[in-house]
Amino acid sequence: MLKINVIGAGILGLWQAYRFAKAGHQVHLLEKSETLFETASSRLAGAMLAPFCESEASQRDLIPHALRSLALWSEGPCDFESKGTLIIAPPRDRVELTSFAKRTIEHQHIKSETIAQLEPSLEGRFNEALYFEKEGHLAPRPALKALITAFRDLGGEVTLGFTGTAPKADYTIDTRGMGAKSELKAKDRALRPVRGEMVVVHAPGLKLYRPIRLLHPRMPSYIVPWPDDHYMIGATVIESDDEGPITLRSGLELLGSAFTVHPAFGDAKIIEFNAGSRPSFFDNLPKIVLDETHIFVNGAYRHGFLLAPLLAELVLAHIENGEPIEGLFQ
């Protein structure tokens, strides 16, 4: 049994803590904020478990790893949905569907009839769509809670408001996101924030079962169903370290895209506008950076929920069996 510190209680840190505790190690989770998840980027995530859609942006190498990670979610303590992803485009931009289809695998090209079977609310609204049946999604905040509950049930210790030096341990797993920027810079790893903005609405008049991605030449967006008729609408991707609230323009664009998907969103109540940073390396892939017994796990970009279980598995295999870190994540 090893003594392990995990710093940072976002999705990466929680999976590391949970996985090491499950493997029988003595784990201490240290979090800077006084309230759980207060500053974690993870609470703003779309939390789509979408290996194929996410590979659209030239990252095909990621698919096998993402699939392995997706399978690991089912061994974890969180509820998640396996209803696939639906990709739609306004009639004028249907070429975007063709383009998306060309760049991805494992999708079906479906017509209005099948769309209506999958999502009755969208009946008659779109003539065609791409359906990625093998993808899933989850509600990020309940998932974070389920992970920390499971971690505590396994005997894990949690310290909130942590600022000082970590207690003595065999290994420290550092998942602080942008908080680790200067230490990573010293190791010649440039971490940068990629701003994302999102909206949460309550739309009891509507029922969507799976993430809907709306393609658009200028402003692609997605809608993810959250529990109790809530929907998360996201998300901008801006190269900026601005940490201020969402801009009016982004808000308008996100809400406008929801309205495009279904006019019933017009009657939805706006519950939350939010903005945060995605810690990212230059290739937008997460990295496991080894510094003797200090192990950085960082830079999840848009892939925190998708890859967190796999990253925990890789760090565990490295510490327990000395297995080398997979090249993509070095």
Binding site: R192, P193, E239, S240, D241, F282
Partner: peptide
């Protein structure tokens, strides 16, 4: 407009 919305990230981007 895009790249200078903030300082730090923009600087990293420039450096590269």
């Amino acid at each position: 407009r895009r790249e200078t919305a903030g300082d730090g990230a923009a600087n990293d981007f420039w450096a590269h």
